[in-house]
């Protein structure tokens, strides 16, 4: 069966598209060694998926070389050291988004579908050509948004553009960098607020987690860690990967603040309000 292509997009930059692609990609590959996963970095000129995966020193060819016929797709794929069933097709760093066309993407992905079970496309920010190149051959889309107004607004715009395509692209929402304590004190929009506004299916929620920064420093996606902190980002990414393969995993519950003091105080406050 030819592989499925999943697009990661958001409209706004800096909400965690590349981090989410890297983590969900390694989670999928680590869960089943028989699933071959390919990640494509479509951010031509501003590539970063290589660095998130720790593969930046092993790039020889890139996606532009492939579509221009300078090399075969197989030669440009960088195999992951840790997971033999995971590969990266890097973006070119010295070119721009116009170096690839949507038609070339459709041809390239048709070829990759024969080699891989899952193809994850990391779209660049924005809704210009890089976005349309990324959409060209996608079967499904994961919209990444933080619970911030500008990210949600841009996500809505992108969902509208995906819905306007003349073929059906299944859209999923991933809410990234949620800060449960702030939601609890009504200083930040929560999962329900964002889902109500965007009105698409929720695939998962990633809590704000400092270890994402540390793992990126090392080039080892957090989802690869041997053990996961309960309710941490690594576990949340693993859960999303499971849901993508059809396993039902309940959403994490972040309701309770970790600080016992804050917890008791909030309980007291709630009691007083109700009485």
């Amino acid at each position: 069966m030819p592989g499925k292509t999943i697009l990661f997009t958001s409209g706004k930059g800096g909400v965690g598209k590349t981090t989410s692609t890297a983590n969900i990609g390694v989670a999928l590959a680590s869960q089943d060694p028989n699933i071959n996963v390919c990640m494509i970095d479509m951010d031509i000129g501003l590539r970063n998926l290589d660095i998130q995966l720790g593969l930046e020193n092993r790039i020889v060819y890139n996606i532009v070389d492939v579509v221009e016929g300078a090399c075969k797709a197989r030669q440009a794929l960088v195999k992951d050291k840790r997971l033999p069933n995971l590969a990266l097709l890097p973006a070119a760093q010295t070119r721009d988004k116009s170096a690839v066309s949507p038609e070339q993407m459709i041809t390239l992905i048709a070829e990759l579908r024969e080699m891989f079970d899952l193809i994850l496309i990391d779209s660049p920010a924005g809704i210009e050509q890089g976005f349309y190149n990324s959409v060209a051959a996608a079967d499904e889309a994961i919209i990444v948004s933080t619970p911030e107004m500008s990210a949600v607004r841009d996500a809505d715009r992108v969902i509208g553009l995906l819905e306007a395509q003349n073929r059906k692209i299944n859209c999923w929402l991933v809410i990234n960098r949620l800060r449960p304590a702030m939601v609890q004190s009504n200083d930040m929009m929560g999962v329900d607020d964002v889902v109500e506004i965007l009105n698409i299916k929720l695939l998962g929620v990633i809590p704000e987690d400092e270890r994402i920064i540390v793992s990126t420093n090392k080039g080892e996606p957090l989802a690869l860690a041997k053990s996961h902190k309960p309710n941490g980002a690594g576990q949340a990414y693993q859960n999303i990967a499971l849901r993508l393969t059809g396993v039902e995993v309940p959403l994490m519950v972040f309701g309770e603040s970790e600080n016992i003091f804050v917890k008791q105080f909030n309980k007291l406050k709630a009691l007083i309000k109700f009485s």
Partner: peptide
Amino acid sequence: LTGPPKDVTSRDEAKKRLQLTIFHDR
């Protein structure tokens, strides 16, 4: 203990403003 009554939280405000903005965007 409960502080001054807060009728509209910044969360509510964000949601309301966003809903209106997105409606106009659409």
